[in-house]
């Protein structure tokens, strides 16, 4: 899959993964805000904040490296979307923190998989070291989400029951 041959390329991808994650969580927070699910809005804003911090850390590493300005189509993602971006098709307006964290978990696992596969295939020791670093970081995130999930038991099957019918806005 990914065929990143230098540090700059790797940093560009790592940074983009986080930026896309931030934008995605913000989008989800907006969705929850519009649909009056304030608990989830807060959770998604928090997730966006954490990813933003991570992005910031990567950005500081980028200053010394020769990082290319890649266009959206130049990123070499294997999947249909950026690895750490939550699938928008899995969102529901009545979703609970358990659901949200499940999605976050999947996103972190995908990010880990991206760097994990990359570090395995990299031959340059410098690149391998940096990929290791990113993979371990994502692994930590996976652990953090799993820990957070312990606070929330899986909701009952009727979690999405809405007694009101849909309305027509237009």
């Amino acid at each position: 899959m990914t065929n990143l041959t230098n540090i700059g390329d790797l940093l560009a991808h790592a940074y983009q993964i986080e930026i896309e994650a931030v934008e995605r969580y913000q989008m989800l927070a907006d969705q929850m805000e519009v649909h009056n699910n304030s608990e989830l809005e807060k959770l998604f804003r928090k997730l966006a904040y954490h990813e933003g911090q991570h992005a910031e850390e990567i950005r500081t590493q980028m200053t010394d490296a020769n990082v290319p300005e890649l266009k959206p189509g130049e990123f070499r993602w294997a999947g249909p979307d950026s690895p750490e971006a939550v699938d928008l098709g899995d969102i529901h307006y009545m979703m609970t923190p358990w659901h949200a964290l499940q999605l976050a978990l999947k996103a972190e696992q995908q990010a880990f998989a991206f760097f994990d596969e990359f570090r395995r295939s990299a031959s340059d020791p410098d690149i391998k070291r940096l990929a290791d670093e990113f993979a371990e970081e994502e692994e930590e995130h996976v652990a953090m989400v799993l820990k957070e999930l312990e606070k929330y038991p899986e909701p009952d099957d009727d979690w999405d029951d809405d007694p009101d019918p849909p309305v027509s806005p237009e």
Binding site: M27, D30, M32, H35, L88, I91, Y93, M95
Partner: peptide
């Protein structure tokens, strides 16, 4: 402007 689409709607992806 925050979209009014249902969460889960494919149109969010199209916007992206």
């Amino acid at each position: 402007v925050k979209p009014i689409w249902c969460p889960g709607c494919g149109d969010y992806h199209v916007l992206i």
